[in-house]
Each structure stands twice: as C-alpha cells, then as structure tokens.
C-alpha cells in the first residue's frame, strides 16, 4: 500500500468531521509532509521489540460491586442541546 497518499475524504468520513474545501486542501498537503517526516521510523529494525501502550504495566482494576451515588437525571442531561423528560433528544434515527 502506498504510504504517501492520504485519501482525505475517506479519513474525514471515518472521523465524522465535515471538512471545508480549504481544510481539505490544507490538510492534504500538510499531512503528506508529516507522513514524509514519519518515514524516519522505517529505518529502525523493530522485529524483536515489544510494543508499548503504557509507561507502566496496566492491569484491570475492579471495585466491589456496590452501588455508589451518581448524578441525578437532571444533572446528567443538563448540557444536552435538546432534552425532554430527563432524556437527551436527538434527530430521528429509525424510520417508521
């Protein structure tokens, strides 16, 4: 696969962002420059190296299965742009 080109429309769709024509052009050229810079990583032999996701070993942390106080419904939905009956309101997602 060609590592140099970036299909900006495809990636923007994956990222769920509408880009303006100006942003499409700007990001395409800038990101190609950045990907070119990333090529320096290709020189390193990593065949026997383990990947590292965290600085320290991360383990699953569980707590006792006891209920704790959370937000009341009014607080939880307070910042939704649209709400009704303590619920977040969104555009229709299912036809019918």
């Amino acid at each position: 696969m060609n590592k140099d080109s970036i299909d900006i429309d495809y990636v923007a769709r994956l990222a769920r962002i509408d880009l303006s024509e100006k942003e499409r052009r700007l990001f395409s050229s800038q990101l190609e420059g950045i990907l070119e810079y990333f090529k320096k990583l290709d020189q390193v032999d990593v065949s026997s190296v383990e990947p590292m996701a965290h600085a320290f070993q991360v383990e699953n942390v569980l707590r006792e299965d006891e209920s704790v106080k959370g937000f009341d419904p009014e607080t939880a939905v307070k910042h939704a742009a649209a709400k009704r009956n303590q619920m977040v309101q969104v555009p229709k997602v299912v036809e019918g």
């Binding site: 696969m1 590592k3 970036i6 900006i8 990636v11 923007a12 994956l14 990222a15 962002i17 880009l19 990001f27 990101l31 950045i34 990333f38 990583l41 290709d42 390193v44 990593v46 190296v49 383990e50 990947p51 590292m52 996701a53």
Partner: peptide, 26 residues
C-alpha cells in the same frame, strides 16, 4: 484527529501505530 484516524485506519495500523509503539519501547 484526521492524522490520528489515518494512522489507526485499516491497512496503516501496523505501519504507523504499531511501529510507533515498538519504538516507544526503545
């Protein structure tokens, strides 16, 4: 976000993200 989405996207994950994680170890 666009750059991060790209390096994680199908076909590029190993070449960018996984490789970067390995060099992070180094």
């Amino acid at each position: 976000i666009i750059l991060g989405t790209y390096v994680l996207s199908s076909g590029y994950y190993d070449a960018y993200y996984l490789r970067a994680q390995k060099i992070r170890t180094l």
